[in-house]
C-alpha cells in the first residue's frame, strides 16, 4: 500500500486529475489479486496427488511426448519457484495451455463458449435489474407494510433456492407440463433456421435458463434498492424537503430514487462479473453451450488445464467488473472520495 501511495504522489507531480489517479490506483490494486489467484492455481496442481504432468494433461497414460512437452512448457523438472515463474509467464503471455482432451488450446475453447454465457448472463442480469428495482421502488413508494412483507419473504425464499433446483422446477412446469419451452440447448438442432428465425429460436431456448437466473438475482436487486431507498428516506435533507413542503411524489422522483439507485449500479456490475460462476449450474441443467457446461465437462474428463483456465478467466472477469463498477460509481457519484 505504501508503495502505491508513493506512486500516487509521483503521479500527482505529473499533474493527473484526481479521478485519473483513482483509476490508476484501482487498476494497480488488481494486480496482486490476479497474481495471488494464479499462485493458488499453481499450488493446487502441485499439492495434488500424482504426477503434475499427468494431471495437467488429464490423460490416464500420457505418451512420453506429451509429458516431455509439458515438462518443457512448465519446467516441471526445475525448482518450484522457477516453475511458478514459468507458470506466470505462460499466463501473462495469454497462453492458458493446451487441452489434451479436446486437442485444442484452452484459449480457443473458452473463446468459443464465451458468447453463449455472455448472452445468457447479460440478458438475465438486465431483466433482474429492471424487475428487482421496479418492485423495490413500487413497494418503497407505498407505505403499506403488507406488500413489503410479502416481497421480502419472497426475496428470502428465492434467495435460498439452489439455482439448479429452480431450473429443474421450471423445466417440470413449463416444459414437461405445459410444453411451452424447450428443455435444453441453444438451437433447435433439427431445423437450420436463418436470419430472424434463428434469433427467434435462440430467444425461445433462452427463455427458461434466463428466467431461472433472473429469478435468483431479482431478490438481490430488490433488497439493495429497497434498503437504499430506506436509507435515503432517512437522510436529513429529505426530511428538510418534506418540511419545506415539496410534495412527496416529487421528492421521491427527484431525490430519493436518484440516490437510491447508486448502490444498485454496483450490484449490477458485480452480477455481470460473477456471471460465469453464477450461471454454471443453470447452464449445466439446460445444456446451454456456455462456459459452465465446458467446466463440467472438464471436471468429468479430468481436464485440469481447461478447468484452471476457466477459473483464471472467471477471476479476471470479476476483477475487471469490480474495477469498472468502481470507476463508473466514482463518475456517477460526486460524493465519492478518490
Amino acid at each position: 500500500m505504501y508503495r502505491l501511495s508513493f506512486l500516487c504522489s509521483f503521479l500527482e507531480v505529473k499533474g493527473l486529475s484526481s479521478l485519473g489517479r483513482f483509476i490508476i490506483r484501482r487498476t494497480l490494486s488488481i494486480i496482486p489479486m490476479v497474481l495471488l489467484i494464479v499462485a493458488i492455481n499453481f499450488f493446487i496442481i502441485h499439492l495434488a496427488p500424482g504426477n503434475p504432468a499427468q494431471l495437467i494433461s488429464g490423460l490416464e497414460q500420457p505418451s512420453p511426448e506429451v509429458i516431455e512437452a509439458l515438462e518443457e512448457q512448465y519446467g516441471l523438472n526445475q525448482p518450484l519457484i522457477v516453475q511458478l515463474g514459468l507458470y506466470y509467464r505462460n499466463i501473462f503471455q495469454g497462453n492458458l495451455g493446451y487441452s489434451f482432451i479436446y486437442g485444442t488450446s484452452v484459449n480457443g475453447l473458452i473463446f468459443e463458449r464465451a458468447g453463449a454465457t455472455i448472452l445468457l448472463t447479460v440478458t438475465a442480469a438486465i431483466i433482474a435489474f429492471i424487475i428487482g428495482t421496479l418492485i423495490a421502488v413500487w413497494v418503497g413508494r407505498r407505505k403499506t407494510k403488507v406488500l413489503d412483507s410479502i416481497f421480502s419473504v419472497l426475496a428470502y425464499i428465492f434467495y435460498a433456492m439452489p439455482s439448479f433446483w429452480l431450473a429443474l422446477v421450471l423445466i417440470l412446469t413449463f416444459s414437461s407440463t405445459f410444453k411451452l419451452f424447450p428443455t435444453s440447448g441453444m438451437f433447435n438442432v433439427r431445423e437450420s433456421y436463418e436470419g430472424f428465425a434463428k434469433i427467434g429460436d435462440v430467444l425461445y431456448h433462452l427463455a427458461l435458463p434466463c428466467a431461472t437466473l433472473a429469478l435468483i438475482q431479482i431478490p438481490v436487486f430488490f433488497r439493495v434498492t429497497r434498503s437504499s431507498i430506506d436509507q435515503v428516506h432517512q437522510d436529513e435533507y429529505i426530511t428538510t424537503f418534506t418540511a419545506i413542503g415539496i410534495s412527496r411524489k416529487k421528492i421521491f422522483k427527484k431525490y430519493v430514487l436518484k440516490n437510491a439507485i447508486l448502490p444498485t449500479i454496483t450490484i449490477f456490475g458485480l452480477t455481470l462479473g460473477y456471471a460465469i460462476s453464477g450461471a454454471a449450474l443453470v447452464e449445466i441443467v439446460f445444456a446451454w453451450p456456455g462456459m459452465g457446461r465446458l467446466m463440467l465437462d472438464a471436471v468429468f474428463r479430468r481436464d485440469y488445464n481447461l478447468l484452471l483456465g476457466i477459473y483464471f478467466v472467471m477471476a479476471v472477469c470479476i476483477c475487471l467488473a469490480i474495477l469498472i463498477t468502481d470507476i463508473v460509481y466514482a463518475l456517477v457519484d460526486p460524493r465519492i472520495r478518490y
Binding site: 496482486p32 489479486m33 495471488l36 489467484i37 493458488i40 493446487i44 495434488a48 496427488p49 494431471l55 460473477y274 460462476s277 453464477g278 454454471a280 467446466m295 471436471v299 479430468r302 485440469y304 478447468l307 484452471l308 476457466i310 477459473y311 472467471m314 477471476a315 470479476i318 476483477c319 469490480i322
Partner: peptide, 23 residues
Amino acid sequence: SKVIDTFLMIPAFFLILIIVSIF
C-alpha cells in the same frame, strides 16, 4: 488483508469444485 480480499472476491464454489475434483 490482501489475501482476504482476494479470496472474498473469487466465488469459493469454483475453487471447491476444482479441489474436490482433484482430491
